[in-house]
Design a protein around this nucleic acid. Sequence first.
DNA 1: CGTCTTTA
DNA 2: TAAAGACGG
Length: 326
Amino acid sequence: MGNSALRDLAAIESVAFDELEGSVVAVDAHNWLYRYLTTTVRFTADEAYTTADGTEVANLIGIVQGLPKFFENDLSPVFVFDGTPTDLKSDEIESRREDREQREEKLEDARERGDDVAVARLDSQTQRLTETIHETSRELLELLDVPIVEAPAEGEAQAAYMARSGDVDYAGTEDYDALLFGSPVTLRQLTSKGDPERMDFEATLAKHDLTWEQLVDVGILCGTDFNPGVDGVGPKTAVQLVKEHGDLWGALEEKNAHVEHADRLRSLFLDPPVEDDYAFDADPSPDVDAARRFVCEEWGVDADEVSRGFERIEESVTQTGLDRWT
DNA sequence: CGTCTTTA
DNA sequence: TAAAGACGG
């Protein structure tokens, strides 16, 4: 089903952070924020990030805890936010909404049972990136002088475009769709403990002797964020079908299958709406005190949850400042 | 999204 | 062996 089928095809290797020193990465903001949001909710008491009127801003804790990873490794992030999603995504969004509703029901049950472990798990799984979360995230990033680029549509597509144009060195996302968007080099696992992964576009094409168009066709056959795949077709058979029959149309004919909006899906990956009028200064000089006030005073976040993160940010910025003089 | 299990 | 499904994070 899903597009983790692409993982089986992708050329991926582990890299050490010090190989990435000094580079600029266009981060898929939605992806990154969601990851830190869910882990914060999972492991932090809600009082720490809930305002008097019940608004939850766990994202602020997540950002403060997540950014040092970039700064301490001398990686400059540019956060790319999503714009208007394509209507092709509506079916996928619908099915995710259904999933979430099911999880919310399970959450109710777990609360009634008093199963704290399940409550924490399900609570983190039912998080969404609300308007408040987006707004406060942007504000905090601005105070920390982290550049933001607004994508017209998919942030992934924008990040891939920026990497292709050479304005950044990498796209950063967990999502394998980055390959279909033609991101030349994508960094994964920037949010987790161990070493990051580097996913290489040209090496992936070479590995299977496919063109970009053909790789996109393979992705469509297996299923992407924007379409369910063809039943019974996974990564292996998709590659085989596309190579044997040239392209998506040949493959579909062979399988007697049909894909809704196949032509639009293709152009969504090969020629997506992107903004080329962007500018950013990848050299951050954060106003940590203002950021602290914003998080702890304006939004009432528990200072204990962010003090270490802010310290790390301060230290790493001072450090790179000194580096420049040596 | 990753991993493990089940099915064809 | 490849793909789907279930479930945990």
